[in-house]
Each structure stands twice: as structure tokens, then as C-alpha cells.
Amino acid sequence: MVGAHRKLPYLLLLPALAVIVLVLLVPLGYCFYLSLFKHSLGTGSHNFIGLKNYIALLSDQRFIASVFRTMLFVAVTLTLEISVGFGLAVMMHSLARGRGLVRAVVMIPWAVPTVISAMIWGWMFNDRLGLANRLLGLIGLIPAPLVWLADPTLTWMAIVIAEVWKTAPFVALIILAGLQMIPIELYQAAEVDGAGGFQKFRLITLPLLWPTILLALLFRTMDALRVFDLIMVMTGGGPAGSTEVLSLYNYKTLFSHLDFGYGSALSMTLFLLVMFFSLVYVRIMVRRAI
């Protein structure tokens, strides 16, 4: 009985691990294997070259620039998403009525397929027909229509807005679930002790919510690092390559250059980058748990 009890947790993990092996380990192994070859179908070559693809990455200006862009994207969108998402969650939580309806509306952006929302936002920023120019023109902020997607800075604003619009609801839903998990008795007890609204927030809500916020941050970081569909559809990496993030460059090497060796090395690098950030989060989480 004791033996069975000790094995039980591992048995419970088994199905999860089996799925992981199938959809992660095998592809990962395949990807790593390919990354050791000069394997380009476009030129028909296939030679084992060890880690040379990885060494070549270090002097690839386009790769380095795309990594910086990815980091910038993660930093900017994450800050905005967490602020907006947190605000939305608190608002939804404080509503006495109609919370279900509000939650359903807030979910809409997340429920619109990315491919479609990217098309919609592309339209919104169209120079002649787009809503953005018309609204800004209406309130007199701009004298002439802006050509949003031909200017790197404006394009960045556009993709950040589109991304935050799409993913802040994800953050909001997770944080709302966390808020709902906090036992109401804690607040009641605090009120008996005479705590005000802000004190309740600082002493009860925030500490109990931290793990959930970190969770939302972790998953958003992992996804933002791999952002693909949105930018691919909205700009294709343009204007002038200024929104080419790592996954986009990766896609182009794999599917358009058919450079499977180098492309796989790029995929592995992106994987390691995500892994690195995840480890940082996990460390923070473990520390807090102790």
C-alpha cells in the first residue's frame, strides 16, 4: 500500500508526460538533429556541420536585429497587457451585476481568430479607409491621413495596439479567476479589524494574487516571444523589415528559403530563449513559495 502510494503521483503525471514526449520531445529532437546539418533544399546540399549553424547565427545581423525586436515587443506588450488586464479583472470582479455578460464581451478579442483580427487591424490602419485615421481626423489630431504601415514607428504602435487588444482579455480572465479564488472570509475578517479598501487590496488581494499574476506573465511571455500570426498577416515583417521578429525570420528561413538546417538552428535558439525566460519565472515562483 505504501509502495503504491509512493508511485501514485508519478502515475498521475504519466499521461501528461506521454503527450509531452509526443508533441515536444520528438519534434525537438528532430529539430536539433536538422540544425546540425547544412541542409538546404534550395541549393540541394546536405552535410553534417556540427554546431556551425549556431556559430553563423552570432554574426547574422538580421538574426540579432530580430532578437532585439522580439525583446522590445515582449517588454512593451507585456507591460501594457498586464496593466490593462489587471484593470479589467478588478473592474469585472467589483461588478455586482452582469459580470457574466461583461466577461463574455471582454472575451471577444481573444475569441476572434488571430488571422482575422490581424486583417481587421490592418484595415483599421489603412491610410484611406481605416477607422484610425478617420477618428483621429475627426477630433482634429492629425492634419492629413497618416500612412501608418509605411512608417516603422507608427507600424510598431499599430501592432502593439493590436496585440494588447487581443491578449489583455487572456490576462484579465486568468487574474479574474485568481480573484474569485480568494476566500471572501479573509476580507470580512479584515473589515472587522477595520481595514480600508486600499489596505485590503495591499494586504490580502495582492499577496494572494501574486502567483496568478506571475502565471499570466509567464504564459504571456512565452507566447509573445513566439509571436507570429499577427505580425505575419498585418505587416509580413514590413515596412522595410522593421517588424521582423525572431519567429518571422525563422518562418522565412524554413518555409521560404527552404534552409532547413539554419532554420532549425533558429527554432532551437527561440526554444532556448523561451526556456531561459521560463526558468527565470520559475525561480521567482519557487522563491516566493518558500
Binding site: 534550395g42 514590413g238 515596412p239 522595410a240 523589415g241 521560404s256 528559403h257
Partner: peptide, 17 residues
Amino acid sequence: RPDYPRISDFLQIGLHR
């Protein structure tokens, strides 16, 4: 040319610049 997609990729970015 077999490497046309790569050439096109360079041209797209370079010309747009």
C-alpha cells in the same frame, strides 16, 4: 532559380527600405 524565394525576400526588404 531555386533560390528565388530567398532573393525575393532580400529584394522585398531592400527595396522597401
